Simulated assay, not measured.
Amino acid sequence: MEMRKPSNGFTMIQTLFVLMIICILAIQVRPYRPNIRLFMKQILDQSIVMQEKAMVEKRDVMVVWSSHSVSLDGHTISYPSGITCDAATYHYNAKGNISSALTITCHQGKKSNRLIFQLGSGRGRLE
């Protein structure tokens, strides 16, 4: 007597193919939203570079935050869409010290993160 294979259901290859199509569509549909924490980390890193630049070149280096961009010694970086930050201005002197202690808050929808700069070291931290 010959055994018959059941013909109901999908093969493993067919199932994997359908799952692959669903995953590709899901990736395509998701809208791009810049990560506020990653953006602020990049700006913090650039601020540390400005501090080092002030010490190496032995001059004041200005950092100006506006509502839609930050200017680092004349080089302007625009914020990604949906991100706004408090306005602030400070500079690093020739010794690398920051001119004032301050907190800069950036918002993206309901999320907000803060950059805190302390006197003395001039280094910032992200909260």
Score class of each variant (00 low, 15 high):
L72I: 09
Y32H: 15
K53H: 06
F39P: 07
C23K: 00
F10P: 07
D60C: 11
R33I: 14
K41G: 02
G74E: 04
V64H: 12
R37W: 10
S81Q: 05
I21M: 13
L115D: 00
S67H: 06
E52P: 01
K111R: 14
D86C: 02
I43Y: 03
I27S: 07
P31D: 03
T11G: 08
V70L: 04
T103D: 07
N97F: 08
D60Y: 10
L38S: 11
K53W: 04
M55C: 07
V63W: 07
T11C: 07
F10H: 10
K95V: 01
V63D: 05
M62K: 11
I22N: 02
Q46V: 01
V18G: 04
K111C: 04
T15V: 05
I22F: 10
N113A: 10
P6R: 14
D45I: 02
S71D: 10
M62Y: 12
R114A: 13
L19C: 09
G122W: 12
G9N: 04
N8V: 13
E57D: 13
K110N: 13
Q46G: 07
R125H: 15
M1F: 14
N35Y: 03
I83P: 08
F17V: 12
T89A: 11
V56S: 05
I13R: 12
T15H: 14
Y92H: 01
L25T: 05
V64E: 14
D45T: 13
M12T: 15
V56Q: 10
M3R: 15
K53D: 04
G74A: 03
Q42W: 04
S99Q: 10
E127T: 13
M40N: 03
K95F: 11
V56N: 06
L19K: 07
I48G: 01
Q14I: 09
G122K: 08
K110C: 01
F10M: 14
L126K: 14
I98K: 06
S100M: 05
P34T: 09
S69D: 09
S99T: 07
I104Y: 03
L16H: 12
M55S: 06
P80L: 01
R4K: 13
I77F: 05
Q51C: 01
T103L: 05
K53A: 01
N113I: 15
H75Q: 12
G9V: 04
